[in-house]
Design a protein around this nucleic acid. Structure first.
Length: 512
DNA sequence: TACGGAAGTG
DNA sequence: CACTTCCGTA
């Protein structure tokens, strides 16, 4: 009876779509992995419903604050069917991310962590990030990062929906900084991290993709050497909006699809990484549905990226494998926390550590009694915070719908604005969104606090040299905290590889 | 409050 | 592999 935690439910209201099992497992996942914590966090972050619990901190890109640790832990516990979850444990998990470089802690600020979006996103969506703020409901980190190389290869044709094409472009031609030649790039791949296995992983992932691509589209041609990263873009013909996708890509037509793989629980796998948009909001890119990349823009991107990259050193490891990028149109609206389409495995009681006897809370076995949550029937997931589960879904959906306009408005045009925002400099974006359209209603409520990002930290520049290379094993150890630590470490001469695999960044940076 | 080792789980 | 659980330390 693991059924204890059956959260599973399909969105009834929505029409309950359930994703096929395969949807939940990505290629690389052996079994089926469940949602990962960081995915979950992102999901929460991108939902306004959870604003009080966790929210982006506006000052820093990717930085978020857990306003209610207990609640977050609870939500996480629910999601994982670990009633015993608490912030202490959750935070331990987050700490593990330090080494993986998915996250790092913002020192000095309580409950504040920062995503290493560069890592996450960049590679995936290079230029897409262009605009980050467009409409983000919550506050989205402006994710400056763009990556160096963009090569979108033909995504697989196999896209379920049969869509297809729109998405493919290879930016290689663009070569933003000009240095990016594709082939040269390969090596870049090897660059720094290759040494350690992580790179390998990363590569592998890429390879996978490429092979896929190759097969289908044969985009690049090198199946093995994949020139760069190719993202499969799946675009849907036009309507693909993922109502449920957290990051909502918004119904924007077109290409939004690319990155939008819904981060939904379904994909929660690592791959999700690229799936979701860095900016929490709905869809940063969305707006840029049609991104026109001009060399110049690219340049900008790179530039900005570079900056950000410095700040966050990305590492390939983060994007492990590209999973199911080709996820079919999953449409299911689920909440981050509750609706877990995938099979949730209920974990047995505290079997964990040799039954130390955590008798204290027997809830585990009996989920029914909502411990803290209280009146929430396990199955129904109505969270206090998210009181409106279903609604929230709708809400988001709604929002997306609403917003789309904004985005739509600026297909190419707003680019400028976007850039502005993004390029604005990572330092401190007070309120971002000047908003291209400004239609959004997102009000920076809590911003007050958030905006406090007084710390103008962005040591970045200097660090680049450090990137040279680091000993293989250090990699795990190395935590690249932004500043202080990083510096310390760096002093020691430890790590430093270039940011995202593509050394483009470095170069770009250098350029800059 | 945060960190990270160690053991354990699925 | 990605946590979960505990715990000692700071």
């Amino acid at each position: 009876m693991k059924a204890g935690c059956s959260i599973v439910e399909k969105p009834e209201g929505g029409g309950g779509y359930q994703f096929p099992d395969w949807a939940y497992k990505t290629e690389s996942s052996p079994g089926s992995r469940q949602i990962q914590l960081w995915h979950f966090i992102l999901e929460l972050l991108q939902k306004e419903e959870f604003r009080h619990v966790i929210a982006w901190q506006q000052g820093e890109y990717g930085e978020f604050v857990i306003k209610d640790p207990d609640e977050v832990a609870r939500l996480w516990g629910r999601r994982k069917c670990k009633p015993q979850m608490n912030y202490d444990k959750l935070s331990r998990a987050l700490r593990y991310y330090y080494n993986k470089r998915i996250l790092h802690k913002t020192k000095g600020k309580r409950f504040t962590y920062k995503f290493n979006f560069n890592k996450l996103v960049m590679p995936n969506y290079p230029f897409i990030n262009i605009r980050s703020s467009g409409v983000v409901p919550q506050s989205a980190p402006p994710v400056p990062t763009a990556s160096s190389r963009f090569h979108f290869s033909p995504l697989d044709t196999h896209s379920p929906t049969g869509d297809v094409q729109p998405g493919r472009f290879s930016a290689s031609s663009l070569t933003a900084s000009g240095q990016e030649s594709s082939n040269g790039t390969d090596r870049k791949v090897e660059l720094s991290e290759l040494e350690d296995g992580s790179a390998a992983d990363w590569r592998r992932g890429v390879d996978l993709m490429s092979s896929r691509n190759a097969v289908s589209g044969g985009g690049i041609g090198h199946q093995k050497r994949k020139p760069d990263i190719m993202l499969p873009l799946f675009t849907r013909p036009g309507m693909y909006s993922d109502p449920h996708s957290p990051f909502a890509v918004s119904p924007i037509p077109g290409r939004g699809g690319v990155l939008n793989v819904p981060i939904s629980p379904a994909l929660s796998l690592t791959p999700t990484i690229f799936s979701y948009s860095p900016s929490p909001g709905l869809s940063p890119f969305t707006s840029s549905s049609c991104f026109s990349f001009n060399p110049e823009e690219m340049k900008h991107y790179l530039h900005s990226q570079a900056c950000s990259v410095f700040n966050y050193h990305l590492s390939p490891r983060t994007f492990p494998r590209y999973p199911g990028l080709m996820v079919p149109p999953l449409q299911c609206q689920m909440h981050p926390e509750e609706s877990t389409p995938f099979s949730i495995k209920l974990q047995p009681p505290p079997a964990g550590r040799k039954n130390r006897e955590r008798v204290e809370s027997s809830e585990e076995s009996t989920p029914i009694a909502a411990p803290t949550m209280a009146p929430i029937p396990p199955r129904i997931k109505v969270e206090p915070t998210a009181e409106k589960d279903p609604e929230s879904l709708r809400q988001s959906a709604r929002e997306k719908e609403e917003h789309p306009r904004e985005e739509g408005t600026m297909p190419g045009r707003t680019t400028e604005e976007e850039k502005g925002a993004v390029f604005a400099r990572p330092a401190a974006p007070p309120t971002w969104p000047p908003g291209p359209t400004g239609t959004m209603s997102e009000e920076p409520l809590e911003v007050t606090e958030d905006s406090e990002d007084r710390s103008g930290k962005e040591p970045s520049a200097p660090e680049k040299k450090e990137d040279a290379l680091m000993p293989p094993k250090l990699r795990l150890k190395r935590r690249w905290n932004d500043d202080p630590e990083a510096r310390e470490l760096s002093k020691k001469g430890k790590f430093l590889w270039n940011g995202s695999g593509p050394r483009g960044l470095a170069t770009a940076a250098a350029d800059a």
